[in-house]
Write a protein that binds this DNA or RNA. Structure first.
Lengths: 157, 157
DNA sequence: TATTGTTATACTCTATAACTATA
DNA sequence: TATAGTTATAGAGTATAACAATA
């Protein structure tokens, strides 16, 4: 299932020269590096999901619903950092695609579940993401990976 | 110059409950963590630049021009991962704001330099970014910071 | 009163395409 | 032919405001 062996940063017309490059002061900032790494990883992940007709966010939503059946879209938004107003078209699209179903919880909220088709797609999604993960930073040991995850989580949570 | 002691993730209507939270499978992926960290850092940096009337990208451009006078905007785009077409309004805005000047290099390209005002702003920008950096991951040692920078750079470059 | 879901809407960022002028 | 700069434009992603229905 692997594809390209390395990442491409997105944007820019041409790759910046691949020679050692003096490097600039910006590249000494961790915030800048994390931003560039994030963009490159997102681009690679989008590639990994090709053919599924799912945006990265939609794929993430499927995984979360698979893990927590009957979650509401408001709660999904809270977990993913997406506003209610922006969740509406996302869940509407997944419902229309037949990947999720809405079950009335109380009068105002609906629990979300994967359909049969959605379950199959979610499994495919997870396999692709796992493959993507190991491809993106292949040189990391499991310990290093765990430590990096903990560090990143500490930044935003 | 320090402000908020910790970061806020952007988006979402309400903060996800701050209790330990079981955590979900997505949070075990490094790509996801880097994305969330990047968003949080960007949000904090935008706060740090408040009052300067500069977007993060514009601030980065000022720093780079300060470091490499007479750089062209095409080269800037290459370094920052921004397309030529999207550089045009950025440099036009900075020129109009009186922060940079364009000096014809040859008939088709222009070297960019900081104006007197631009130089002062660039110094302010750099000070704010340095402050931001040390505020965002204050628990990192210099060695850890360097290692993290190298890891992130390896992802995208 | 607070929350859920929804719609409308605006702004930013990025992408493509096409054009002119120059090397 | 390739590059520099520009313009126009389309698509994401995210922001706010407002509303109805329900808790």
């Amino acid at each position: 299932m692997s594809q390209s062996p390395c990442l491409n940063a997105p944007m820019s017309d041409k790759p910046a020269s691949s020679s050692p490059q003096p490097g600039n002061r910006l590249e000494g900032f961790l915030g800048y590096q994390i931003r560039r790494a994030s963009a490159a990883i997102l681009a690679d992940l989008a590639q990994s999901l090709q053919g599924l007709d799912l945006k990265i966010t939609e794929a993430s939503i499927l995984m979360l619903i698979g893990e927590r059946p009957d979650i509401t879209q408001s709660e999904l938004g809270r977990l993913l950092g997406i506003k209610r107003a922006n969740m509406a078209p996302l869940t509407a699209g997944l419902t229309e695609a037949g990947l999720i179903e809405r079950i009335a919880a109380d009068g105002r909220s609906q629990g979300l579940r994967l359909s049969e088709a959605g379950h199959a797609v979610a499994i495919d999604v997870e396999a692709r993401i796992i493959d993507h993960e190991t491809r993106v930073l292949p040189w990391l040991s499991d310990d290093e990976r765990r430590a990096l995850i903990a560090t990143m989580m500490r930044v935003w949570r």
